[in-house]
Design a binder for these strands. Structure first.
Lengths: 346, 346
DNA sequence: TTGAAAGCGCTAACAC
DNA sequence: GTGTTAGCGCTTTCAA
C-alpha cells in the first residue's frame, strides 16, 4: 500500500501489456479504442506518478549545458557566479548533466560574439547566459531559439520572447529599498546617487536603480530631501568627489548604484569625511570590510551566486524532469549591515 | 568518451565479473587477493562515479520521514514551516521519500510526548523535530538515537550529542542585528526590550536575543543609550505598555523579541503614539501590514519555511545519497523593511 | 571465492 | 494495434 503504482500494475489492472500502457501515457503509437478506454479508466481511479528515476536511467542521456559568463578572473562578482554554477554542476553530476563554463571578456563585444559562436557549435541542450551586452545578447538568444536551445538569462534582463526565463532582482525595487534605508537614518538633507562607470555594461542597471530611488522620494511628497545624481568615471572619482562634497555641504547620504562603493569609502576614509551615510551594492571583500568598519552603512546583496545557481538548477530540472521554466524568478533584495553580513558570506 | 565508467566497464577491464567489482567497491563478501588487486588497479586509474539513479532504482526502498511539528493551525509561524515541509516532500516524492507530519499541541508537553511515542511506533527512517520543550525533546532525541534514527532539529537548538544536526539561526547574533538597526536610526535615548510571553516555549529564544542586543551596546561603550527590559503577558499588554511609556518618556525604540510585534503596533496605532521605532520578528500577515503602514520599522525574518525545508532536505539527501548531515546549518538573518518584504513573502 | 542471472520501472525496437 | 523482449546500471541471490 505504500508502494506506488507502476505501469506493470496498470497493465495488469487494465488487462493489457506494459507497452500499451506506455503508448496511452505518452500518446505515442496506435492504440485501439477499447484499450484506450480500459487504461484511462484505471488511470482515472489511481494516482499514477511515473518513476522519474527509472525514466532517467532508461534514457541514459547526457545533458550538456553551456554557461556564457564574463571571465571570473576579471571581477570578483563573476567569481561568485562561478561558485554558484559549480555548486549546481555538482548537484546534478549524478544525473548525467555536464556543465561547461565559457567565459568572455566583459569589456569586449567581439569576445562575447566569438564565444557565443563556440557554444553554438557545441550544440548544447541548454544555455545559461549573462547578457552583458544588450544588442549582442538579443541576437545570441535568437540564435539559440532558432536551434531550439532553451536559454535562461541571469543578472541582466533582456526582454525578448525567445528567452525561456530570467533569474535576478527587480532593480527598480532595489532602488526603493536603498531609499527607504536612507529615509530611516536621515531626517532631511541632500542625497546623491553616484553612478560609477567603469564600463558601459551596467548602464541599464544603474538607471533602473535610480528610477526606483527617485520614485520612492517622490511618493513621499516630502520637501526635506533633495536628490542629485553624479555620474563619474572610476578613475576620476578621487578628484571629482571631494570637490563635489565641498560644494554641497548639505549632502547627507551617498547611494552608489554599482559594486564600487569601496572606492568611495576609501576616499572618505582618507579624507576623514564622516557623518555621511553610504549605501552600496554587493558583498565584495572590500565592501564588506568597509561595512564592518562603519564607512558603509548598508550593502544590498544581489546574490550573484544564488542567481547563477538557480538559473542552472532550473535548466537542469527542465532537461531531466521536463519541469517548465519560470519566466521571471525574482530573488529577494537582501539588506546587509555589519551584524548580519557573516551568514550571507557562507 | 563522454560516458561515465560503469561497473560493467570495470569488470571488463579487470577481467572479472560485475559481482566481484561490486564486492570490492562495497567491501562486502569475500574477494580473493588477486581479484582485489586487479580491480583496485583499475579503480586507481579511472574516476569511477557510481550511478546513483541506478542504485536508487535497484534498492527500490521507500524512505519514511516523520516530522514532529506544533499544530500549524495554532500559529501562522508553524503554518509556514508546514509549507516548507510540503515543498521538500514534493521535491523528493520521485525518490520514494514519504513524509508524515505529526502535530502536537504547542501548549502541552503531554501532547508532545504522546505524539513522539506515535512516531517511535512507526519506526521511521529519520525524524525532523521542532524541539519546543527542552527536557521532553532531549528525552525524545535520545529515544530516536537508541533506535538508530537520525534526527534534525530546527527552530530551537538542543545541545545534545544524540542529535544529528540543527537548522536555524544564531539567536544571539540576531539580537545584535536588531541593535545595529536601532543604532542606525536613533542617536540616543531609551531602548526597551519587550518579551511578550504567551507561553513559556520561547523563553530561551528571547533570552538569547536579549543577550546579543545588550552585548552590542556594551561594546559600543556609549553613554547615549539606556537599555531596559519589559516582560509582559500578551493579555496584559494593553494595560501595561501605555503605562510604561508614560513613565519613561525617554523611550525611543521597542525591540519585540517574538513574532507578536503586531500586538504592540496595534496599541501604538490606537493611542496614536508615533516616533517610536519598533523592530520585531517574523513575516506574519499582521506584522507585514504594520511594516507597510510604518508602525513597524523592521522585521527580522527567521525564515521558518526555509528552515523546515532545509531540514527535511538534508534528511532526504542523507537517506538517498548517504550525504553527511551538517551539525549546524545557520541561516542568514534577513533584515526586512517595507520595500523588500514582497520578495520574501513569495 | 566467483560468475551468471534476475529484476528494480521504464522505453523502444521488433515481431505478430 | 498489441504483446514481448532487451536493456539502462546496479544489487543480490543462487549455483558452481
Amino acid at each position: 500500500m505504500n508502494r506506488k503504482y507502476t505501469i506493470k500494475d496498470i497493465a495488469a489492472l487494465a488487462g493489457v501489456s506494459k507497452g500499451t500502457v506506455d503508448r496511452v501515457l505518452h500518446k505515442r503509437g496506435k492504440v485501439s479504442e477499447a484499450a484506450l478506454k480500459k487504461v484511462n479508466a484505471i488511470l482515472d481511479e489511481i494516482d499514477y506518478q511515473p518513476n522519474i528515476i527509472a525514466q532517467n536511467l532508461k534514457q541514459n542521456k547526457v545533458f550538456h549545458i553551456c554557461v556564457l559568463l564574463p571571465n571570473p578572473e576579471m571581477d570578483n562578482y563573476w567569481k561568485r557566479c562561478e561558485e554558484g554554477i559549480l555548486n549546481a554542476k555538482n548537484d546534478f553530476a549524478a544525473f548525467n548533466v555536464m556543465v561547461s563554463i565559457v567565459d568572455f571578456d566583459p569589456l569586449s563585444t567581439a569576445s562575447f560574439n566569438l564565444k557565443h559562436q563556440d557554444i553554438l557549435k557545441q550544440q548544447p541542450d541548454a544555455v545559461l547566459l549573462a547578457p552583458l551586452f544588450y544588442k549582442e545578447s538579443k541576437s545570441a538568444i535568437n540564435d539559440y531559439y532558432a536551434h531550439n536551445i532553451p536559454v535562461i538569462t541571469f543578472n541582466n534582463q533582456v526582454t525578448i520572447d525567445a528567452v525561456s526565463g530570467f533569474v535576478g532582482q527587480d532593480l527598480v525595487q532595489s532602488g526603493r529599498v536603498a531609499a527607504k534605508l536612507f529615509e530611516s537614518m536621515i531626517k532631511s538633507g541632500g542625497l546623491t546617487i553616484i553612478h560609477i562607470n567603469e564600463d558601459i555594461t551596467n548602464a541599464m542597471h544603474m538607471q533602473e536603480k535610480e528610477r526606483g530611488f527617485r520614485a520612492f522620494f517622490e511618493t513621499l511628497h516630502s520637501q526635506d530631501f533633495t536628490i542629485s545624481t553624479l555620474q563619474v568615471d572610476a578613475k576620476k572619482l578621487h578628484e571629482i568627489l571631494p570637490d563635489y562634497l565641498n560644494k554641497t555641504p548639505e549632502t547627507k547620504g551617498l547611494f552608489i548604484t554599482t559594486s564600487k562603493s569601496h572606492l568611495v569609502s576609501k576616499l572618505l576614509e582618507a579624507k576623514v569625511i564622516k557623518d555621511l551615510v553610504v549605501i552600496g551594492y554587493d558583498l565584495l571583500e572590500d565592501n564588506v570590510n568597509y561595512l564592518k568598519s562603519g564607512w558603509i552603512s548598508y550593502l544590498i546583496n544581489q546574490n550573484p551566486k544564488h542567481q547563477a545557481y538557480l538559473g542552472l538548477n532550473a535548466l537542469a530540472e527542465h532537461l531531466i524532469y521536463q519541469n517548465p521554466i519560470l519566466k521571471n524568478k525574482l530573488l529577494p533584495i537582501d539588506i546587509i549591515n555589519s551584524e548580519n553580513v557573516q551568514q550571507y558570506l557562507d
